[in-house]
Design a protein around this nucleic acid. Sequence first.
DNA 1: CGGCATCCTCTTTGATACTG
DNA 2: CAGTATCAAAGAGGATGCCG
Lengths: 215, 215
Amino acid sequence: MRSYGQYCSVAKALDVIGARWNLLIVRELVLRGPLRYTDLMAGLPGIATNLLSERLHDLEQAGVVTREAAPPPIATTVFDLTERGRQLDQIVRALGEWGVPLMVEPARDDEFRSDWLSFPVSLFFTREAPAGPPVAIELRTGDHPMTIETADGAVRTRSGAADEPDLVLTGDPQPILGLLSGYLEPAEARDRGVQVEGDLDILDRLRPQAAVTAR
Amino acid sequence: MRSYGQYCSVAKALDVIGARWNLLIVRELVLRGPLRYTDLMAGLPGIATNLLSERLHDLEQAGVVTREAAPPPIATTVFDLTERGRQLDQIVRALGEWGVPLMVEPARDDEFRSDWLSFPVSLFFTREAPAGPPVAIELRTGDHPMTIETADGAVRTRSGAADEPDLVLTGDPQPILGLLSGYLEPAEARDRGVQVEGDLDILDRLRPQAAVTAR
DNA sequence: CGGCATCCTCTTTGATACTG
DNA sequence: CAGTATCAAAGAGGATGCCG
């Protein structure tokens, strides 16, 4: 991408990570950790293979991404963020939070990957785990299950199923997010095809006090 | 710009503000407040006039920017951020902070506007004003003077000259930033053409304790 | 002068095919 | 698996024209 040619730190940052796809590549590495080329392709539906290749070289050059030939038994190239790249976490996260209101509109033909749920979920729920017994919520939507759980005093989202979920939500991502955010009533979510197994009241325990009182 | 077509809040955010120039338009409005078309052109060296026009319409459509026909005596259109646009402040700021290390390399042919100093300066200095007498530092570089001062218990940067500056720095932006950050010694800054009037020790008072002890 | 619209050229993107 | 090669279409940049 052509430089903005401005001696401004915002413009300089955008010179490095402002080109199309760059921040989404960073998103994948932030959410999923070190990845192979094909994993990146799978997490970035819509990108052309030549562009991913070119962008990875650019980001490597800029000191944002590392490319490492993993030893056997992996025997493939693995891409990861550098320390400097990891500092982009806050920018991707801020974008993810700003974009949450844009998820209310139905998805239509949008592609979806389960890992992308992390940003909205972290916005809806408290950072710190509430007092009381631990919580585990399993979301069955997208390409693989995701679990929201309390651990070490924090609320975290991770890939994979829960061992003993208190609540399992199955369906399309949009109504599930509506339910998690409190934007949709349980009855509406069910109308939109969400299957609920377990205790929905548990969601209130994870929400910031302000949101709870607002209901 | 073509949509990423991903049901992800980061991708949705980038669908709205990811196109080239968009975040720099927001930067101008964040830093300088409501602006006329020509003010925006002046603050965005390198943008083509058709692109600025197009982007302003896009951002207006997206609910990020408002366009208001100001009443006489201004008698012109004034562009400003909506509430939603103002929330982009944190993203622009995060980008500005991430980009500061990229300002170390000399600017060469880069364009420069004084207002852009705000982001680096806010990173170098404490947010809260230190105990003791108030501080005012005037920076004479770029198209107009800027003042860093303590007011209401905070350290702020604003456009314009200081009434009774404790320190005045005149010269190119790069060595001035080096001096403010502590990256350049005063002697080096002088070698690079910075003229110093007043008390340089005042900078230490504004820096986070960690940085002070590190020297 | 402020706020564009048009025209033209050049670069970047996206889709697809192909390769070590 | 991890790319490179090719090519049509879209977008960016620059110059200039228009209109209140």
